[in-house]
Simulated scan of single mutants.
Amino acid sequence: MRQDSRLSRMLHVLIHIGRHEGAMTSEMIAQMLDANPVVIRRTMAGLRDEGYVSSVKGHGGGWTLARPLEKLTLLDIYRAVGEPSIFAVGPANDMPGCLIEQAVNGTLTDAFNEAEELLHKRFAGVTLADIPSGFPEISEQEGDRRCST
């Protein structure tokens, strides 16, 4: 099963935007992520709709942060990218009339909901500014070179 990497990719992008002087174009971001600029624009539009980034069209345009990294949490971005499923496992619905299947599904659903709530709380407590604090300061140009390989 393929993992949904939208959250990780957008966190990566937003931190770069926050450290970049000026706007970053969809083409720059797409090259960094080895993705299609149209996909980047579509995903970034969701972040713009939430007020997390701004965009300017045309020459000299691109994407900039509408809020500082300190004011954006993992939970904000998780929700903005559509709240992708956290779990690859889930309840079965092969025999909806079976009482045992219903009991199993109820138990699993309760556990999944509890784990998801805990993860949401953790996401709410981490800002995007907290993420790069664990590595040494590097220039944006050096960071761009590392991410484009």
Rank of each mutant, 00 (worst) to 15 (best):
V104Q: 13
H16T: 14
D130R: 06
K57F: 06
D49Y: 00
I29F: 00
D130A: 15
S5V: 08
P132G: 07
R2W: 09
L118I: 12
V38E: 11
M24V: 01
T43F: 02
G97D: 11
F123S: 02
G134T: 11
R41C: 00
V104D: 09
L7M: 03
R2H: 11
D144K: 14
G22S: 08
S55H: 09
A80N: 02
V81N: 06
L74N: 11
V104A: 10
G106T: 10
D94W: 11
S139K: 02
V126G: 00
E27G: 05
D94P: 05
S139M: 01
I100Y: 08
V81K: 11
G18N: 04
G51S: 02
S5M: 10
S26P: 05
G106V: 07
T25K: 07
G82Y: 04
E101Q: 11
K57P: 12
E117Y: 11
E21K: 09
R42I: 13
V38P: 01
D144I: 09
A92Y: 10
D130I: 02
G106Q: 14
F135D: 07
S85C: 04
V89I: 10
D130G: 06
D76A: 03
A88I: 13
V53R: 02
N93T: 12
L14D: 00
V104E: 10
F123M: 10
A45F: 01
L33R: 05
L11E: 05
W63A: 01
S55G: 03
V38K: 09
E137W: 08
S148L: 03
E27N: 05
E140M: 04
L11F: 10
A35H: 14
L108H: 06
N36V: 09
G51N: 04
S139I: 00
A129K: 14
N105V: 03
R42P: 01
A23M: 08
E50Y: 03
P91I: 12
M44Y: 00
S148H: 01
S26W: 00
F87P: 07
A111H: 14
R2Y: 07
L11W: 06
E137G: 08
V81E: 04
P37Y: 03
D49T: 02
F87V: 01
T107N: 12
G58W: 01
P37Q: 01
D130L: 05
C98T: 04
V56T: 12
I86F: 09
A92L: 13
A30C: 07
I131F: 02
G82W: 05
E140D: 09
P91N: 06
H20N: 15
N113Q: 12
D34N: 13
H59L: 05
E140V: 11
F87S: 08
V13K: 00
Q31G: 10
L75T: 01
